[in-house]
Every structure is written in structure tokens, then in C-alpha cells.
Computed example of a mutant assay.
Amino acid sequence: MSRPRKHSLTIGGHRTSVSLEDDFWAGLREIAVERGQGINEIATEIDAARDRETGLATAMRLFVLRHYRDRAMGL
């Protein structure tokens, strides 16, 4: 298991940093490639869709989890 690693992102024209474990960063990169998008684009979508009481890092982890869970269930 890896410790969270901080990466800089641009969301809505603003720079921010998010700390996620390597497996989540890898998952986000894989999803980005599948969708033909960049990580910043996906992060912007996640940010826009999240409940404001949910932190961005948590929302990103849940996004990756849901993506692979849905795939495993054939959705």
C-alpha cells in the first residue's frame, strides 16, 4: 500500500493539489485514457458533481471505485 501522493491539478482555471494513493492516480489515468480525456477534465467533472460536504480527494476515490465496481457488474 502506498501513502497518499500529492499532485497538482487545474480545476475551473484554478490550481489545486490533491493527495491520493498511487492506485487511485493509476485508476484515474486509466479512466482518462478510456474516455479520451485528461486528468484535469475528469477532476473538473468530479468537482462539479460532488456534494460540497464531500472533499475532492474523497470524491475522486469514490469516482474510481464506482467506475471499476460498475465495470465488474457489467454496467
Rank of each mutant, 00 (worst) to 15 (best):
E41L: 02
F63R: 09
E41W: 05
E53L: 10
P4G: 02
A43S: 14
K6L: 12
I11N: 06
T10A: 03
M60R: 03
S17A: 12
R15P: 10
I46V: 15
L9K: 05
F24K: 01
I11S: 05
R61Y: 01
E45L: 11
A32W: 03
M60C: 03
T54I: 12
F24H: 01
R3A: 10
R50K: 10
G12P: 12
Q37P: 07
N40E: 13
I42L: 14
A57G: 09
K6F: 10
G12K: 09
T44Y: 06
E30K: 15
S17D: 13
R35L: 15
G27I: 02
M60A: 09
A59L: 07
G27Y: 07
A57F: 04
N40M: 11
A43M: 15
E45D: 13
V33I: 14
K6I: 14
R52M: 06
R52T: 06
L20M: 09
A43H: 09
G13S: 07
V33Q: 13
T16R: 14
A59P: 04
M60I: 08
E45S: 07
G13W: 00
G12F: 10
I11K: 00
A43L: 15
L9H: 13
E21Q: 08
L65T: 12
V33E: 12
E34L: 12
A49R: 14
T44V: 05
L20Q: 08
E21G: 03
A26Q: 14
E34V: 13
R15L: 11
L65N: 11
E41R: 01
T10H: 01
T16S: 14
R66I: 02
T58E: 05
T44F: 06
V18P: 01
I31K: 10
H14C: 05
V64P: 09
R52S: 09
L20G: 06
I46D: 04
T44A: 13
A48R: 15
D51P: 02
T44W: 01
A26Y: 10
I46K: 01
G55I: 00
I39C: 06
I11D: 04
G27W: 01
P4F: 00
S17R: 08
R3T: 03
I31W: 02
L56G: 08
F63I: 08
I11L: 08
E21S: 02
S19L: 05
